[in-house]
Amino acid sequence: MKQTFLTPRNKIILLAVLLIVCILGSFTLGHYPVPLPQLLGILGERLGLPIQPFWTTQMETAVWNIRLPRVLLSVLVGACLAGAGASYQGIFQNPMASPDILGASAGAGFGAALAILAGFSSVGITLGAFVCSLGTVALVFTVSRHAKGDRILGLVLAGIMVSSLFQAGTSFIKLVADPTNKLPQITYWLMGSLSGAKWQELGFVLIPMLAGLIPLLLLRWQLNVVTMGDDEARAMGVNAPKVRLWVVLCSTLVTASAVSVSGMIGWVGLVIPHMLRRLVGSDYRYLMPGSMLGGSVFLLIVDNVSRNATTAGIPIGILTAFIGAPFFLWLITGKGDHYEH
């Protein structure tokens, strides 16, 4: 490789800078825009800096209670989905793997639908989705233990089957749900949206998200070795089934957390890791942090569009599909290999 400024490491740093710019920019957009000086002032004051307020209380409410939790949640959900997608693509040695491959999304959808049917509050819905999501992946894992033959294939097949079972369950709940209030609520939840983001939700998912994201970042070198196949990895001193188990645990934790607060947001987990492969290469030392940052930037931008495009706000899940699918087609038809110099 030629010694250029754009090494994978520098690209990651640029991506981090871009994320910060996007975060700050997100506050200045919206029905109640907050200019940058006021924004920095409000944030600084909240962090304990001695700043005399030169902003209105309305501004402070908008920044602190509405926009900040939503921005932080977009950043976290994006990082979780893209990080889990990149991890699954590695451990299953399958570039088409996405965070919902083991049924995390289908389980979360079922749990949320059930919680809405039972008339739970928004925290109850998040909790229901989270628990059902973890339960579904646990079920998939248990079933696959009894599968004969290739264990990876068994896991993926079990994931597909259990997912469709839970999707059928969700459909049944929609069928029996009250069509005047509960059915629209379920449908809206399933479309995926961050519009209901509050500090409460953020507090609930922050710990499990970090508990998953940090080990995934630390295990990124082992992930490289696991993509070579179990036998080769073992001969190089890496216990691939053990790494896979940890990665599945962490990825499930972050996916379940993300889906339980945001609903079904598709494509991020598939498209972003592929885009980053083009950008920084397949080496997980760069791909993992790159995917997480890229997922954050992407979801933040899409959520800004979702917030500002119409007064009602288009659910973010619809937008990611509209952007993701054509973008993916463009990626796979794109010529040239990023690594050949």
Partner: peptide, 14 residues
């Protein structure tokens, strides 16, 4: 150390 007959990594490594 093991040197396999061939190795076809699914992803593109240098």
């Amino acid at each position: 150390a093991y040197i396999p007959q061939s190795s076809r990594p699914i992803f593109n490594y240098s």
